[in-house]
Structure formats: structure tokens, C-alpha cells
């Protein structure tokens, strides 16, 4: 931990200081620090900086905060640590460096978790995303019995083998910050690190939003519109993918993988909302997941035919 930090910026005092400490640490490891992607998504993995950039031969090192929306996890602000909107901190390094585990442990030290007093463990947890057609092997990282991060070596994304393999780290920011700040309720987190009148809590920022969005997600989200949006996003994705092949049919180079992938992200989020509204039956659920996966795969295929995807 950086001792020169003013008190209100220290990771154990301030949620924003905590995020900045992580960003700074990973910037020093050569990562580009991106800002959140400007679309609703269920996890940082959906960000094109992970999903698409994990594919193809070109090196890529990035870190960013991604607001993650899980409509089903809303609890009207009444659960101490479950929310329909929270932050993930995502690191992706391709190819995975040989010392990725050590870097991860150093990042914990940077946010005030000292391995001399904390019991840090790598416990088997294989990761799979059926909607992204992706899987990898790795661990959930435990600190004193609490899962604080997910550590994955991507083997396949969008149905394509990762060559080379990227290493992905995902930190559950609120949970880690709660541990470091020693609070039991997420809304009690000190957001800005100030005290007294100047103090802003996580609850000040997000409690009302949790209540409103829970209402929206479970009770009022317009399902007719959402069903329509799903179809439109699916259609648009296909359309952009078809139109993006340069020189028509020869499928050598693609010029619109990113806009097409946006529609895949959109479809996935709309599906999550419909799922939260309980209007998708068990059997339909599987077919929606498959439809999103088909989009993700087609986008992955397009991406590897773009310049950043490694096409000649």
C-alpha cells in the first residue's frame, strides 16, 4: 500500500480510493486503464475489451471497472450484500504472464490485504459462460474464507480456442471493500473517504437506485417491449455481421465486428431482464441462452477477421 496517500484516498477508508489503488497498480503493470463500457451487461467479461480482445494472437493488457447488472439479484436494497447493480474490477492479460499469481497477490497488498496476517488461497473453480460460449480453468481466490476474486485462464471464447491464452482476474469490489473497511452492510461503505458531513456512503449513492431498479426488474419492466427488443437486437446483430464482410462472400476480412457485438450484449441483457420478470419458462430459457451464444460465436468469428483480431 502506498504510504504517501492522504487518509481519504486510502483503500481501507474509501471505496473510490480502493478502486483508484487497483487501477494504479495495474497501470504500473503495463495495462491500459479503460473506462466502463457504455452498455448494460451482466459481468466485466462481456466488455469487448475482454470477450473480443481475448481472441487472436495480438498481446493485450487492460484493466477497468465494469458496472454489472444482474436484474434477478435485486433485493429492493434490503439484503446486506446482494444487489442488481454492482462493480467488478476486471484485468485481462494476453498472453497470461508467468507471474500472474504473484501480480494478483501484490495487487491485494496494494489494497491493504497483507499476506502475513491474511490466509489467501486458490481454490479450484472452473469458469464457464454458456452465453459467451467460453470456458477456462482457474480458481476462486479466498481471503480468510471469503471469495474475493475469480482467476481464470481462458481456454475458449465465443467458441474459438484462445491462442495464446489470456489470464483474467475479476475482483468483486464491494465485497472486498466491505472486508477492508470492516463493514457488514454494503450501503454502509464509505464511498469518498471523508468523515462527518462530508462523508458519502455507498447507500447515499446507490440505495435508491437499488429500490427503484428492483421494482422495475421484477414488477414493471415492459415485457412486450423487451421481447421485441431481443428480436430486434438479434436481427440487427445478424444484419451487421452479414454486411461487415469486406468483398462480400469471401469472408477474409470483417469491418463491423464491434457494432455487431454491441447488439449481442444488448440481447443478453434483455434476456436477463425477461428472466427476472419470470416470463421465460425453463425450456425456453435454454433456447434463449443458445440464441445469445450463437450471436457471440458469430461475433467472435467476425472479430478474428479484423485487424485487432489478428487478421493479416
Amino acid at each position: 500500500m502506498d504510504a504517501s496517500l492522504p487518509a481519504h484516498m486510502r483503500p481501507e477508508r474509501s471505496f473510490q480510493g480502493f478502486i483508484l489503488a487497483l487501477q494504479r497498480f495495474w497501470a504500473e503493470q503495463g495495462c491500459v486503464i479503460l473506462q466502463p463500457y457504455d452498455m448494460e451487461m451482466g459481468a466485466g467479461t462481456f466488455h469487448p475489451a475482454t470477450t473480443l480482445r481475448a481472441l487472436g494472437p495480438k498481446p493485450w493488457n487492460a484493466a477497468y471497472v465494469q458496472p454489472s447488472r444482474r436484474p434477478k439479484d435485486g433485493r429492493y436494497g434490503e439484503n446486506p450484500n446482494r444487489m442488481q447493480h454492482y462493480y467488478q474490477f476486471q484485468v485481462i492479460m494476453k498472453p497470461s504472464p508467468p507471474n500472474l499469481q504473484e501480480l494478483y497477490l501484490k495487487s491485494l497488498a496494494a489494497i491493504g490485504i497483507d499476506s502475513a496476517v491474511h490466509d489467501i488461497r486458490f481454490v479450484e473453480d472452473d469458469w464457464e459462460s454458456p452465453t459467451l460460449g467460453a470456458w477456462g480453468l482457474g480458481w476462486e481466490c479466498w481471503c480468510d474464507g471469503m471469495e474475493v476474486s475469480q482467476f481464470t485462464y481462458f481456454q475458449q471464447v465465443a467458441g474459438f480456442e484462445c491462442a495464446p491464452v489470456a489470464g483474467e482476474l475479476t475482483y468483486g469490489l464491494e465485497r472486498l471493500a466491505m472486508y477492508v473497511q470492516g463493514v457488514d452492510r454494503v450501503y454502509d461503505l464509505n464511498f469518498n473517504g471523508r468523515e462527518g458531513d462530508a462523508k458519502v456512503t455507498y447507500g447515499d449513492v446507490f440505495l435508491q437506485a437499488e429500490q427503484e431498479y428492483s421494482r422495475h426488474n421484477f414488477e414493471y419492466a415492459d415485457t412486450a417491449m423487451l421481447f421485441e427488443q431481443f428480436k430486434m437486437a438479434e436481427l440487427a446483430c445478424r444484419k451487421y455481421l452479414d454486411a461487415g464482410w469486406r468483398d462480400g462472400g469471401n469472408r477474409k476480412q470483417h469491418l463491423m465486428a464491434l457494432p455487431a457485438y454491441d447488439q449481442c450484449i444488448k440481447a443478453s441483457h434483455v434476456f436477463n431482464l425477461l428472466d427476472a420478470r419470470g416470463v421465460i419458462s425453463v425450456t425456453e430459457r435454454q433456447s434463449y441462452i443458445l440464441r445469445v451464444r450463437e450471436l457471440a460465436k458469430a461475433c467472435g468469428e467476425a472479430w478474428i477477421h479484423t485487424e485487432a483480431g489478428g487478421a493479416a
Binding site: P95, S96, Y153, P164, V165
Partner: peptide, 12 residues
């Protein structure tokens, strides 16, 4: 039972 590739050599 399950194995994986990693690092720079995994591209080859």
C-alpha cells in the same frame, strides 16, 4: 481429468 494451456507458448 481436465487440463489447460497458458502463457505465450499456448499460441503455438
Amino acid at each position: 481429468p481436465k487440463s489447460m494451456r497458458w502463457g505465450a507458448r499456448s499460441g503455438k
